[in-house]
């Protein structure tokens, strides 16, 4: 066990990251945190907080440090700390990112500016209201619709008579879109969402494609929901949604593929 400890220390020293090492360089960075409280009607301002950072420190780590030791009133929303829950989205140095997924060392800037996600109403400090975003998501019926499924049948009968086996190719058509964690970064980066409140946004449209491309889905009216001048046709392919997506979902691709079907370029959804 001692041998293992020594090995760990040795490898840490090699990387120059061990706090017990004299040569360990603990840097400091300045966080500029957007502060406001809409419920109390307070004016917005930025607070500057100096926090220690290491090579692996994320923006969320530094914000939590600031909240623990410098100012406990900072409002942040977070949960998993590993880019799975999509709670800690915020505008970091001008670009929407997940705070837990952004290392300060990668930003290469002595000042880290944290602001709430654009295009979302602000509740307090870095916490934004996702109600409208989730309403857009719900409006596209984000679930598999299959009229062949008879709810009166027992589970055993369903699995035997209505199994939905899919080939690898069929799964590949929608799998990447099902990785969406609903963090809202794409919605925040989209220039159309910035000006059109009725536009469902890249997240909802990509999810519509996700269910549409699923061979188990038989929803016929799904496309009618977004066949509107504020719907699918409003996307002008700026590509910013795909640029900021932390999970490789590529909403811009889903939207264009959906449009190709609606225009009749792809006639069978299984061929998209």
């Amino acid at each position: 066990m001692r041998e293992l400890d020594n090995m760990t220390v040795k490898s840490d020293k090699k990387a120059g990251c061990d706090p017990r090492d004299d040569s360990f360089d603990l840097k400091k960075t300045t966080l500029r945190v957007f502060r406001t409280n809409t419920a109390q009607g307070k004016d917005s301002h930025f607070d500057s907080l100096v926090v220690p950072v290491q090579r692996w420190t994320t923006v969320l780590d530094s914000l939590l440090y600031a909240k623990s030791y410098l100012d406990s009133s900072i409002g942040i929303r977070y949960s998993c700390r590993m880019a799975s829950c999509g709670s800690c989205g915020m505008k970091i140095n001008g670009i929407p990112r997940l705070a837990c997924y952004t290392k300060i060392s990668e930003l290469e800037d002595p000042v880290v500016v944290c602001e709430p996600l654009p295009n979302f109403p602000v509740i307090r400090d870095l916490v934004t209201d996702f109600t409208q975003f989730f309403n857009h998501h719900k409006s596209i019926n984000p679930y598999i619709q299959n009229l062949n499924y008879d709810k009166t049948e027992k589970i055993d009968e369903v699995s035997s008579s209505h199994s939905h086996r899919q080939s690898r190719e069929e799964v590949d058509k929608y799998l990447q879109f099902s990785y969406c964690i609903k963090c809202g970064l794409c919605y925040s980066a989209c220039p159309t969402v910035a000006t059109d409140t009725k536009f469902p946004g890249p997240q909802a449209l990509a999810q519509l494609y996700r269910y549409y491309a699923d061979s188990r889905d038989a929803g016929k009216n799904r496309l009618n929901i977004v066949d509107d001048r504020h719907g699918l046709w409003r996307c002008h392919f700026a590509g910013s949604c795909s640029k900021v997506c932390p999970k490789g979902v590529d909403p811009a691709l889903g939207i264009q593929l959906l449009r190709s079907y609606m225009l009749g370029i792809s006639k069978d959804k299984r061929n998209v």
Binding site: I95, N135, S139, P191, A194, F237, G239, V244
Partner: peptide
């Protein structure tokens, strides 16, 4: 576009301001 009963909130929308700086998101933007 049918929305589920929530009034549209323009609070914190970037608007045309969001178009002014195209350099944040790469060549496509």
């Amino acid at each position: 576009m049918k929305m589920l009963g929530q009034k549209n909130n323009r609070d914190n929308r970037e608007g045309l301001k969001g178009w002014l700086n195209p350099l944040r998101y790469g060549w496509e933007r």
